[in-house]
Design a protein around this nucleic acid. Sequence first.
DNA 1: TCTGGGGTCCTAGGACCC
DNA 2: TCTGGGGTCCTAGGACCC
Length: 416
Amino acid sequence: MFALVDCNNFYASCERAFNPSLNNHPVVVLSNNDGCVIARSNEAKELGIPMGAPAFEYRYLFERHHVAVFSANFSLYGDMSHRVMTILSDYSPNQEIYSIDECFLDLSNMLVDLQEHGLAMRKQVLQWTGIPVSVGIAPTKALAKAANRIAKKFTVRTGGTYVIDTDEKRIKALKWLAVEDVWGIGRRNARKLNSIGVKTAYDFCRLSRTWVLNNMTVVGTRLQDDLNGIPTLDMEPVELKQSIATTRTFENDYRTYDEVKERVCTFAVTCAEKLRQQHSLCNALEVFIQSNRFKEEDEQYSNSITVKFPFPTSSTLEIVDFALQGLQSIFKKGIGYKRAGVVLMRFVPDNEYQQSLFFKSNPKHALLMNAIDQLNSKYGTTVRLAAQDKKTHKMKQERLSPKYTTNLNGIINVSL
DNA sequence: TCTGGGGTCCTAGGACCC
DNA sequence: TCTGGGGTCCTAGGACCC
């Protein structure tokens, strides 16, 4: 049996945990630059605010209904997530952290009443962190996801925990679950399925294997098995990331190479720091730039390029150099750029890798990077490349809550 | 005026090999 | 007019997730 534990309206709940006066009031959290709505409390959902809604379009609705609006505070959410996950890890010998706000727990061979077990974790997380969670328990991951939806939808009746442990309950759940709400079926496939009359997860399970294979690849047939109670997805060990990205939408359009270059340079620096944190080297990166797609009257342009390195490296200096080489080759004059990003890929561990016969990473850089990382983690970002953008260059974050649980550098300074 | 960010997996098709 | 067969590896792009 698997449990899927999911924090309800996670970012909104984090803001509430430190500001109980927000309970029963609509709360929304905005993306970077205060651009879009990325989290909503139930009350905000009831007001008809959709996920991803542009904040400026909803400003009047926010005011009219006294919606509490917050800029995203990822240091806070990351730290709260860690606390929730730590508590949950006590409820199973095997935990898979699936995202910032949810995890799977392996409950096989556990001699406990599963319903009671779910209720207990929910109660403890709420008491210790103030974050409400929902628990779905079932014999496969996809069914645990479905059970979780039921627990969340009928919190009062279920106590926030729902167990699918008979075929009767499984069928009932599948008939209740709309096909577009099935984990693994996105917008595209949902539309296709709807068009042939498939409305529920149950309908989907009854489709012929051949049709599913032809139209949805093996991913679809695996999902079908999983929903039928045959496990195809197992617990995944937390492994190192396979790619690391830093991408941003700019506050306004950049027209000059130098403006874009400064930002891309900083993206590369941030990526390299994350890369060293997981003790990897990378062999390639991708740079992309995009014009402002909302200015339809402007000339549109977007391009990306993959730069392969002659040697693996985690040196900021070398990675920045490769990123700027890539940027130069795709930058086109006369465009208003609104978004750009750097993605590192093709990783190898930093302690074992194939040396190139002719090229190698500058060995002095490792020591330098180590020194810079230590300084920056201790004092905040103090050591920077001259080519980076100035620190004054800040995101719009007009409604940022305090970092209640960490200091400026994300280091925990408060115990709950 | 203002429209997010960071991941994973799969596949078709091209390049290359014998 | 007819133009082999069977592999592997790589990558861009699509679909999905939160």
